[in-house]
Design a protein around this nucleic acid. Structure first.
Lengths: 344, 344
DNA sequence: GTGAAAGCGCTAACAC
DNA sequence: GTGTTAGCGCTTTCAC
């Protein structure tokens, strides 16, 4: 004997299938007593709506797709990043009986756009979460937009006004970190910039400038070095900064990899951290806790961001109006051992 | 204008929808010339079969579900493990246009079984990959079996004869590691066992015994210590072993966490590794490369295992007979710095 | 080899 | 508030 259908439930409850459908989908206009009868029937029969039938009829599945940069394409750089995204997205989905499809995507391949489109057209997901840095790539975004499926970019570069997005407060929290450093007595605080293509990372420089101003400190081009997000560029920038005639007493890097590079250089040069030099990063990757001394950094709320994105997608699906708005989930400063009072 | 359907393709190709269906599904009994006409029409119209419709009619989706122990439930212990599984499963799926649904599962919760059943009955996946240690848990396996969906446990404890599975050669490779250690001149090789509930881990002890015998070495209960897979138990067992009247010159632990624990104890006790003591582990987790000296260990081929599992599920779906067989993907020994010649 | 017809289990539009 | 009637776009069965 096969699984019960909506007809079986309707028969047992003594109503029409439409009413069962209403109950299952939490639609209004059902008398409480009727609803209860239907719910009983569902429980008795152990009825589970068939998603395929539902999807076919409604032209929409209950799937949420999480698209991110394929870690297998390089050397598994940021496993924690992906797991955090997945965890958050899963959390957002589970509260709404949605399922999560994961789709790592190698953006270096020519046909990513086509493949993404196929995936979307075939599975008709309720929505798509696009992680950074893919959320900054026109090739990816355009492919998704072309399908008309709701999507939420995480930390997108430019956001068209009417579009959904979830970001963190890069700028504000970087200002805060800069003020924290200034509060420690540092007068010469340097900054190492990241990949300029990445808007979120660019915002970090702006935050640094804000923080300087708010602390009554002068901004100087000479205290800014241009990195590219890599450990190596952190080393190079750190060396340049430290060999300066009047070296900074604090270096704030736009990400942890670069901050770790600075730390390495400081060790090599015999510069004591945090005694002579304070170092701060951004991201709070595992490495930040593994280096000696552990890095003061900024924790990006990836889990929450992905969770919010999933919820936005799913909520919007229930309502008649499309979800909208830019959400901002605040990042938090993690003070560890790499920062301390400015040397006298 | 909306997406083309099978009817549009049929019209353009001048055939019936059934023939289009045959071509799309690579069924036999289609003349080559006809097939070609249909394929052209598909290309011209950019036709993509709607998975929901397909699923509804066939009572089966093209989804593969990967079930694993929820890392969010504890403290994100083994991110690499999960990412490897995902990568492999994704690889197996992509070659067959299948998609991967991830489903972390907290087996400590009472209702995991029910939730799993719901998921399966609603999405009707083509198959399910069950990662260890969930593959050892009757509660989980029974819930899946009850749905009648094909599934492949990875490193299952007991495998009923007719059932699919993918494992690695725990026993053989452990014998090999033991012989390698013996070949280095070690006469007193100790072993630290892991969680006895985990059959795959139990097999490692058997392999150790095999290796001893093959090397003409005597097995002694006194050289076996019972750990529980944790770093802490590795420390405890290591200490016990090293304070022995006649301590071993090599310790082989059933996993890397325990091996790392032994290493820590050796350092504390001033025992030189690998000068006075060789240490070997199993799993090749990231930690194995991060400790000093780096651990000699055994690399479990997780990516390949998951890939094979996905392929088995998908292939079986295409054929009329169910897939079957136990596959074994061999593990490989990674010699690093923690092992060396026995002290004179 | 190929096609016609009958669903799969649900949602949507509208009637009552 | 509730029911009726059409489909959604495929696969299946069976006829040719």
């Amino acid at each position: 004997m096969s699984r019960p259908t909506i007809f079986d439930v309707a028969k047992v409850a003594g109503v029409s299938i439409k009413t069962v459908s209403r109950v299952v989908n939490h639609e209004p206009n059902v008398r409480d007593s009727t609803r209860e009868r239907v719910e009983n029937a569902i429980a008795v029969l152990k009825y589970r709506p068939d998603q395929s039938a539902r999807n076919l009829a409604s032209h929409r599945s209950h799937l949420v797709v999480l698209v991110y940069d394929d870690p297998a394409a390089y050397d598994m750089p940021s496993g924690g990043y992906i797991l955090d995204l997945q965890q958050g997205a899963l959390k957002g989905c589970s509260s709404a009986r949605s399922e999560l499809l994961i789709h790592p995507c190698n953006f270096r391949k020519k046909n990513v756009g086509v493949q993404l489109k196929s995936l979307i057209e075939e599975t008709r997901p309720a929505g798509i979460i696009v992680a950074a840095p893919l959320s900054n790539m026109p090739k990816i975004i355009r492919a998704i937009e072309a399908t008309g499926t709701p999507f939420v970019p995480l930390s997108p570069g430019k956001q068209s006004v009417k579009q959904l997005s979830v970001s963190t407060n890069d700028r504000e929290v970087c200002a805060e970190m800069t003020r924290y450093l200034a509060g420690l007595g540092h007068k010469r605080i340097a900054f190492i910039t990241g990949d300029p293509d990445h808007k979120a990372v660019a915002n970090r420089l702006l935050g640094y400038q804000d923080g300087l101003k708010e602390s009554g400190l002068e901004f100087s081009e000479k205290l800014v070095a241009a990195g590219d997000n890599s450990f190596g560029s952190g080393e190079a920038c750190g060396e340049k900064l430290l060999k300066h005639a009047r070296p900074p007493t604090a270096i704030f890097a736009a990400n942890d990899d670069m901050a770790a590079g600075v730390l390495r250089v400081a060790n090599r040069l015999g510069v004591d951290v945090p005694g002579q030099l304070s170092i701060a990063g951004f991201d709070d990757i595992a490495l930040a806790r593994q280096v000696e001394p552990a890095l003061t950094t900024i924790r990006q709320p990836l889990v929450r961001m992905a969770e919010r994105a999933a919820s936005m997608l799913i909520e919007g699906n229930g309502q008649d109006e499309k979800p909208h708005g830019k959400e901002i989930v605040p990042a938090t400063i993690k003070i560890r051992e790499s920062t301390g009072p400015a040397p006298a």
